[in-house]
Design a protein around this nucleic acid. Structure first.
Lengths: 137, 137
DNA sequence: CTTAGACCTGTGTCTAAGACACAGGTCAAG
DNA sequence: CTTGACCTGTGTCTTAGACACAGGTCTAAG
């Protein structure tokens, strides 16, 4: 299988496959013409990678997991520990986005009733520069 | 003012100040020793940048806004239009994170009751590789 | 057999927003 | 004058691929 075939068969892009290959997560054989040749083993390997990405693991995580399993060890403990970390990070980012969304949405609605102003020497845009202060008041 | 002074006075890092300077958002004078010298105008300019970043504008957005205001025009219409875009993006990412958080959390709790398994030729980790399928069942 | 065109390949570069490393410069104390 | 602490600018690194590009491959027509 060539790179684009593999990618299409699992609904991803050739560039992603190339990226995983560059990192050593996939190890295709070299075809005579220099093209990379992917076997069925690579197909299930890629399937694993995509599942893990979909669950929030980073590519570095996946590399670590694969390394562990290639040593013959069970990767399950590592997997549980990694997802705990990733979930905590996701939770933090989620809260941050929640707060940001609120701020943006309140800014947007407030700004719609405010007039335009020309910039001055020390003010680029009064909408932005007065936003936090108004909030305090 | 030197870069670190400016940064500390507004609670950011010297690297950020250098970054904004590199992009031309800040235009310090050159001191005799080659160091960059920031004036009071730069202080309010940086204050503006930090406020805008805090509201979810990208650095590229901020550059555009500053350019507009340096032409003497009011940046307000641009600011309103940009925040609408950014808010939509944020909303999308927020929904994606919400879904991801749910998936991760359900994976974590399910995996805690599942046993470890050694890898096989076509399976790296059964926790991950069976997750979607179990969900369907 | 040759040629044209369509498609595909690997490699290298680019992204956002800074963080980090590092060689060298500056400054105050001794 | 020198030591050491701190500071500076520049250059490289980060994620997870997307994109550009020169060249290779393959199929169909002549």
């Amino acid at each position: 299988m060539k790179v684009a075939e593999l990618a299409k068969s699992l609904g991803t892009t050739a560039d992603s496959v190339r990226y995983y290959t560059r990192l050593g997560l996939l190890k295709p054989a070299k075809s005579v013409n220099g093209y990379k040749s992917y076997s069925n083993k690579e197909v299930s390997r890629l399937k694993f990678i995509l599942s893990a990405r979909n669950l929030g693991f980073s590519v570095a995580d996946i590399k670590e997991i694969i390394n562990e399993s290639e040593d013959g060890k069970s990767a399950c403990p590592l997997v549980r520990s990694l997802i705990k970390e990733r979930l905590e990070e996701t939770e933090k980012q989620f809260q941050a986005m929640l707060a940001l969304r609120g701020k943006m949405s309140s800014a947007l609605s407030r700004w719609e009733e405010m007039e335009d102003k020309a910039p001055t020497a020390n003010m680029v845009c009064h909408l932005i520069e007065n936003f936090e202060q108004i909030k305090k008041a």
